[in-house]
Design a binder for these strands. Structure first.
Lengths: 144, 144
DNA sequence: CTACAACCTGTGCGTTACACACAGGTCAAG
DNA sequence: CTTGACCTGTGTGTAACGCACAGGTTGTAG
């Protein structure tokens, strides 16, 4: 039987993360001491390791919860797992593209600003650097 | 004098976003009707357009708040603006890299899983697909 | 046996930038 | 006056923790 701290060490997870997973019901204590301390088995440690693996693969905690609940009922979560990853691959690709666009916008701005002096704000302008950036009228919104 | 909705149209911002900005004090109403409705001037509209520009460039709402507060006091925010963008460029580069690593992990996993059948979970295993993924013991943590 | 310090415990709140819901208010048409 | 469409402010929920706090536990010294 491990305490929270021991479970954290055993599963290579920060203790406060273990507590968070407990809070949201992603893991449950196997037992409880009289003073309220939660106790765990080595089974919980491997469960926790599974959770970290899934997170490392991009699954959200909610998805992991679904998966473990399915597994607990004896149903195979594999089909959902494949679908989720496929969806996440698309999602992530879009996000990366958006962040690369942002990156370019920022780099272009910084370069452009190199030739511009600092300015004192007046009633019309808050920061002429930011206001000088072009292309702010074309907002692209890509949904999931 | 505009209402929230009119200000939203004028500044090309969703109305619920305008309300959010009001809530966090990023913008303030110029006046108030007797029924509690908030009223704005065209000055507020251009302020809001500035906020959208800054967001488009990657500034957080907190940073924008700082910038506008500086500007309101007559101090030039330009120096901070340059520093923030420089910092954000580094930050974003790291994030993009991390997301590309994740992308590769996901794609490799999906490919690898193509040859694997679905499995029924037992006590030892939750989902053998996820558990089969290699390299889960080497966690990389890149800080800002 | 007691005093004290170091550490560990559960839990409440703060974070980002909205999205949604809800009860009530406003305005034009009939 | 009533109906319906729309608009208003505000409370709450989101993801995944990070931090802080008051109290409990454990080890060591005296």
């Amino acid at each position: 039987m491990f305490t929270v701290n021991e479970l954290a060490l055993e599963s290579d997870t920060p203790a406060h993360v273990v507590r968070y997973y407990l809070r949201i019901g992603l893991i449950q204590p196997a037992a409880q001491q009289e003073n309220g301390y939660r106790l765990f088995t080595s089974n919980d440690a491997s469960r926790l390791r599974f959770i970290r693996m899934a997170k490392h693969l991009g699954f959200t905690l909610n998805e992991i919860k679904q998966i473990t609940q399915h597994a607990e009922l004896g149903e195979s979560p594999c089909d959902d797992v494949r679908k989720i990853i496929q969806h996440r691959i698309h999602e992530n690709r879009a996000k990366i593209e958006e962040m690369m666009n942002l990156q370019e916008r920022m780099e272009q701005a910084l370069e452009q600003w190199d030739l511009m002096p600092d300015g004192i704000p007046d009633g019309n302008s808050v920061c002429h650097l930011i206001e000088s950036v072009e292309g702010s009228e074309g907002h692209c919104h890509t949904e999931t």
